[in-house]
Nucleic acid binder design. Structure first.
Length: 267
DNA sequence: AATCTGTTCAACCGCAATTAC
DNA sequence: TGTAATTGCGGTTGAACAGAT
């Protein structure tokens, strides 16, 4: 016995949204907030699927959205994050305030992929003698958390897991929460009840992989420091003998510390 | 002016994970 | 606990537009 059957898809509008449809959707979300996407078409008479409403809102109508004019800094950040994460567009978008995964994906496919391929080609020619000189893409595990005990358990799992993980707090457009380095929950919106984090399993890569990913000035390259959220670490990483002294010496568990920490570890 | 070709980007689709019943 | 609905993600499509011929 599951949920009540879904409404028929017949009669739903497709294609470009009209200004009137935009107004209806915007007004509804302003009044009732995001989520329950399928209800929107029911309650407003919009002949659009819930999926379509969600996409239209997230990619176009959100008030905090930035469209077009991707700056050279943002461009650089996209390239670096793509090098690190691959086609994880939502994850990359999470590090670029006001940008959507769709916009970044489009921008990558239309502007950056050719340039990166060209650069790789020229790099390969010049570094032909070192075939092992390639970077790796880190696979992350996304988990959804809220402030209940189960979510604490999830975080605790990663805190106690020997394969300690880097926590990438999502700069989620739905809320402004993040996990602080001490794992207390920072909640700037008491009405929101959950958030996502992405975890990189350290078992998946070696230090050299990370070093080859060229993290340098990742944070600094983004001009919008107000919205920039630092990468943070699990408690284990802070306690780990390999890391502790260095990170505490740098007194900040964010990416600004990465290059020097890694450099010192290599010595 | 008409047609062709390439580019852009909003929107759709299918799938997997999560959530609700 | 099983099943179906919902949500979110990445890949793909196609309409609209611009520039070339």
């Amino acid at each position: 016995m599951g949920r009540s059957p879904c409404c028929s898809k017949e009669g739903l509008n497709k294609g470009a949204w009209t200004a009137r449809e935009d107004d209806i959707l915007r007004d509804y979300i302003t009044l009732h907030g995001e989520g329950r996407w399928r209800n929107i078409s029911k309650k407003t008479g919009l002949m659009r699927s819930g999926k379509s409403c969600r996409l239209r809102w997230l990619n176009y109508l959100r008030p905090d959205i930035k469209r077009g004019n991707i700056s050279p800094d943002e461009e650089e950040l996209i390239i670096r994050l793509h090098k690190l994460l691959g086609n994880r567009w939502s994850l990359i978008a999470g590090r670029l305030p006001g940008r959507t995964d769709n916009e970044i994906k489009n921008y990558w496919n239309t502007n950056l992929v050719k340039r990166v391929q060209h650069n790789q080609h020229t790099t390969n020619i010049s570094a032909n003698s070192s075939p092992n000189n390639h970077h790796r893409v880190f696979k992350t595990k996304a988990i959804k958390c809220n402030q209940d005990s189960q979510s604490h358990h999830k975080i605790q799992h990663f805190k106690t897991n020997p394969d300690a993980a880097i926590v990438l707090p999502m700069n989620d457009h739905n809320n402004n929460k993040k996990i602080e380095s001490d794992h207390t929950y920072s909640n700037s919106d008491n009405n929101s009840s959950d958030f996502r984090v992405d975890l990189i399993n350290l078992d998946d890569f070696s230090f050299s992989d990370l070093l080859n990913s060229d993290f340098s000035d990742l944070s600094a390259s983004n001009s919008d420091h107000h919205h920039q959220q630092p990468l943070v670490f699990t408690e284990e990483m802070l306690q780990d003998n390999f890391w502790t002294a260095d990170i505490h010496d740098h007194s900040a568990s964010d990416l600004n510390s990465f290059p020097s920490i890694f450099e010192s570890r290599r010595e």
